[in-house]
Design a protein around this nucleic acid. Structure first.
Lengths: 142, 142
DNA sequence: TATTGTTATACTCTATAACTATA
DNA sequence: TATAGTTATAGAGTATAACAATA
């Protein structure tokens, strides 16, 4: 019987869409596409990382990543550097301007999102985290 | 303190991505894009609906929807009809071929997704549904 | 005047595969 | 041979605004 499964998946997808729709609109108002914001948020507060690592964290495939990074480089948000070790790897990091964008936008986006959780109690968070942690573990294993 | 919020949102997004990545790959193997599958799944087992209604259910904006429906019409999956009532509205429904595609693909996609929940107990489902229902309600209200 | 859906524009993401350069 | 990243290609989704037909 797949009713139970469908109900859960539908709920998961509805929650994600409800959240993302508002969040994406918010991000775009700051002049970033969702993918670009994802990269800024991933690179923020790090010394940078290889394209491979960045692709794995953001789930953007390498061919796509090149294009996204090209546009961000044009906007002066990221820079690519050949590292000292393996000369096939490119090291991607935020430029000073990228850092500034991160510092300015990230807290605002987080704050706007957090507003939607106002009234969520400790135990609400706890239940949600537990249920989602279990789901994540399960999805990773199956 | 936004740590709690960030942790929950990160988990939500990770679960969704883990699930969607596999599901989208699966859907594409059947020759549909995720958006097209979304529309087929929404129209399946219904007499059809207006573009407006379809857009609301799938969260595809009207300008985009026209393009998606164009491609699906070309593939012979959907048809658009001017209704009897309000003559501004277009009624969208699956063609017989669209119905056949729905009947063939939908169960397979559901089944493949359900596989990843094998081992999920009744109480696991229960916890997940409760946590997500509460979240959905909350997101809708704030 | 407001609403339904289309058109037009410009951009962005996507999958995929072939390619370059290193290893 | 394998890996990191780019290039090339074709298609698809996105936001946005202007528009036609109808209400």
């Amino acid at each position: 019987m797949s009713k139970r499964y469908l109900r859960s998946i539908r709920l998961l997808s509805e929650c994600m869409q409800l959240f993302e729709q508002a969040s994406n609109r918010n991000v775009r108002q700051f002049g970033c596409t969702p993918a670009q914001f994802d990269i800024i948020a991933t690179l923020g507060n790090t010394p940078g990382m290889t394209c491979k690592e960045l692709g794995e964290k953001t789930l953007i495939t390498k061919g796509t990543l090149t294009g996204v990074l090209d546009r961000m480089e044009q906007k002066g948000l990221v820079q690519r550097e050949r590292g000292d070790g393996d000369r096939r790897q490119l090291f991607v990091k935020l430029t000073p301007q990228g850092e500034a964008t991160f510092s300015e936008i990230f807290p605002k986006v987080v704050h706007a999102g957090e507003q939607r959780f106002s009234g969520y109690t400790d135990s609400d968070y706890c239940d949600l985290e537990q249920a989602l942690s279990k789901l994540k573990k399960h999805l990773n294993e199956n």
